[in-house]
Amino acid sequence: MLHKFGFSQYESKVYETLAATMQPMDATMIVKHSGVPKAKIYEVISRMVEKGMVLESISEKKKLYTALALPLVIEKLTAEFKSDIKELEQQKLQKEIVDDRVWSLKADTSIESQIKQMLVDADRSIRYSSWKEDFQKYLPILEEKERAGVRVEALAVGEIHSGLKNLVIMEPNEEHVSLERFRLLIVDDAEVIFAGVENEAWQAIKTRSQPFVRVFTDYFYHDVLLSKITTKYNDVLMNDTEIMNQLLQLRY
């Protein structure tokens, strides 16, 4: 009867044999009355003892076995079933399908809305960089998220007054020929949106593709590091024409 509850046929036979008598049995007697092969009996009995369905004792150097009373078996199986159901309810049965496609956006209002929504939805981390005019639009959300425990790292091109703990300011040099307006947002190490101006119009890409997320994360820290270096060693770099010429060609 127990095979209906996930027990093997041999396990069920051992329990039924022991439950049918009030007297304890040794392994030889169980083999005789259950039909379980002698070569399998100790393995089967051991599993039933481990599962709490069979009780074991030693009398005169002989191991004896008896079955757990049926009412207790019913109570045990009911409790385990309820526990399994509870665990099942807590499991996320449907595997999340990650959309790793790269989406393009062309309207500035759409790009701004996407950035705002991604910031609001952030749970663990935010990396954001942009020019100060765009930065100011999202500053209240960034500060609120940091207060809520989200790790916020930010880079602003142009001076920003904020209490953000990890804010790097980069003041562009007048000779920065390659410095263009941009917006970069990476949320929870899972999603990125990058926007730039082309033909005087904003365009952007948005994706959850992990290779892109990692590339833009490196891109973000590249900008942060260069900003810190050029700020800290500005006087030295300004006197090194070769290095300054190369730095000024960078987008950062």
Rank of each mutant, 00 (worst) to 15 (best):
2 L>K: 06
2 L>W: 03
3 H>I: 03
6 G>D: 10
7 F>T: 03
8 S>C: 07
10 Y>M: 08
10 Y>I: 00
13 K>Q: 10
15 Y>S: 01
15 Y>W: 15
17 T>P: 00
18 L>T: 05
23 Q>K: 13
24 P>T: 15
30 I>W: 01
32 K>Y: 13
37 P>S: 01
40 K>D: 11
42 Y>T: 07
43 E>I: 11
50 E>K: 10
54 V>K: 03
55 L>N: 06
59 S>E: 15
61 K>T: 09
63 K>W: 12
66 T>D: 02
67 A>C: 10
69 A>D: 06
70 L>H: 04
72 L>H: 06
73 V>Q: 05
75 E>D: 12
77 L>A: 01
77 L>D: 03
80 E>G: 02
81 F>P: 00
81 F>L: 13
81 F>K: 12
86 K>M: 10
91 Q>T: 04
93 L>P: 00
93 L>F: 00
95 K>W: 07
97 I>V: 14
97 I>R: 11
98 V>D: 10
100 D>V: 08
101 R>H: 04
102 V>T: 11
103 W>H: 09
105 L>P: 09
107 A>C: 08
107 A>L: 13
108 D>P: 05
111 I>D: 01
112 E>S: 02
116 K>W: 01
117 Q>G: 04
125 S>P: 03
129 S>F: 07
132 K>Q: 09
134 D>F: 05
136 Q>S: 09
137 K>V: 05
137 K>S: 12
137 K>L: 10
139 L>R: 07
142 L>P: 08
143 E>C: 14
145 K>F: 14
145 K>I: 12
146 E>V: 14
148 A>E: 11
154 A>V: 15
157 V>M: 04
158 G>V: 05
162 S>H: 09
162 S>L: 04
162 S>Y: 15
163 G>E: 11
167 L>H: 01
168 V>A: 02
171 E>H: 10
173 N>S: 13
175 E>D: 09
179 L>E: 04
179 L>A: 08
180 E>R: 14
186 I>L: 14
188 D>Q: 05
190 A>K: 15
192 V>I: 13
197 V>P: 05
197 V>T: 10
200 E>Q: 14
201 A>G: 02
202 W>I: 02
202 W>G: 07
206 K>S: 04
206 K>T: 09
207 T>V: 07
208 R>H: 13
209 S>M: 06
209 S>C: 08
215 V>D: 08
216 F>H: 01
217 T>H: 04
218 D>V: 00
220 F>P: 13
220 F>M: 04
221 Y>G: 13
222 H>W: 13
222 H>V: 06
223 D>A: 15
224 V>K: 10
225 L>R: 08
226 L>N: 13
228 K>N: 12
231 T>E: 14
231 T>C: 02
233 Y>N: 02
237 L>E: 10
241 T>A: 11
241 T>F: 11
243 I>E: 02
244 M>A: 05
249 Q>E: 13
